[in-house]
Simulated scan of single mutants.
Amino acid sequence: MSAAQTQLQAARDADAADYAPVDLTFAQNKFQQAQAAMTSRKYADAADLATEAQADAELATAKARLGDVRARIQTKTDENARLREAMEQAHPELSSRSQMPATLPAAAPTGDMPAPSASVLSAPMPGGDGGFQTVPQPATSTSAGNAQEGQP
């Protein structure tokens, strides 16, 4: 019960009421049910409900932290856009020479790879079989069959 109560407080401290109100409500309701089960001396039910309350509170805490980080990222992105716009207005000659991307590219650009030269493609493979490897055929002699069965 104390672990669930501690996790509930951590969720409240992380502003789960703003960022994850549904999960926080679930956790609080489960905790209240766990307390009622303890009062009714249903200790197994109380333990299960307290565990569920703790899990819901952990989820609410994680969602609250994620929401907070996303809000901070959005604030920084907005501030960068405002600064970029102010810079372009103050120095229009800079914006025409080099364009700064508003966001980072998702992946490095990939260009077409040049094909290898024809001499590389047509060179024969070592071994003289035209580049093909052959698979060894199983032995068909009777001595090989007798050796496999353990007979001389």
Score class of each variant (00 low, 15 high):
T134L: 12
S95I: 06
L94T: 04
E88F: 09
A107D: 09
L59N: 07
R70H: 10
A44H: 07
S96Y: 06
A64N: 02
G127F: 02
S2N: 10
A60E: 04
A118G: 04
T140P: 00
P105I: 06
A34H: 01
M113T: 09
A147N: 08
A86T: 11
E58G: 03
T134A: 12
A102Y: 07
M87H: 00
L24H: 03
D18T: 15
D45P: 00
S95D: 05
A107S: 14
P116F: 08
R41A: 10
R97S: 08
M1Q: 08
P114Y: 07
T61H: 10
P136L: 07
L59F: 02
A36T: 08
P152N: 08
P136G: 02
A57Y: 00
D23Y: 03
R84P: 00
S143N: 10
R65N: 12
I73H: 02
V135D: 07
T39N: 11
D15E: 13
T39D: 10
T25C: 02
F31Q: 11
N29G: 05
A17F: 06
P114C: 06
T140R: 11
A147L: 14
A62K: 14
A50S: 15
P116L: 11
A16K: 08
M38W: 01
G111S: 11
V69S: 02
V69I: 13
T142F: 07
Y43I: 07
F26Y: 11
T25L: 13
T6F: 05
E79K: 12
S141Y: 02
D112S: 10
E52H: 05
A4E: 01
Q89Y: 00
E52S: 15
G131C: 07
M125W: 13
L49N: 04
R41S: 12
M100T: 13
T134K: 08
L24R: 02
E85W: 03
G128E: 01
G130H: 03
A47M: 09
A53L: 04
A17K: 14
P114Q: 08
T39I: 07
M87I: 14
P152A: 11
G111Y: 09
S122E: 14
A47T: 10
A57P: 02
A10C: 04
F132V: 14
K63W: 04
A118L: 14
K30L: 15
D112N: 10
A71E: 06
A55Y: 05
D48F: 05
E79C: 04
A57T: 05
G150W: 04
L24N: 01
A118R: 12
M1R: 10
D13I: 07
A47G: 00
E58N: 10
L94P: 00
D48T: 11
M100C: 03
L49T: 03
N146M: 15
P101F: 03
A55R: 12
Q148T: 09
M1D: 08
A3K: 12
S119G: 02
R97N: 09
D18R: 15
P124R: 08
L66S: 09
M87V: 13
A118K: 10
Q35S: 13
V22Q: 13
F132L: 12
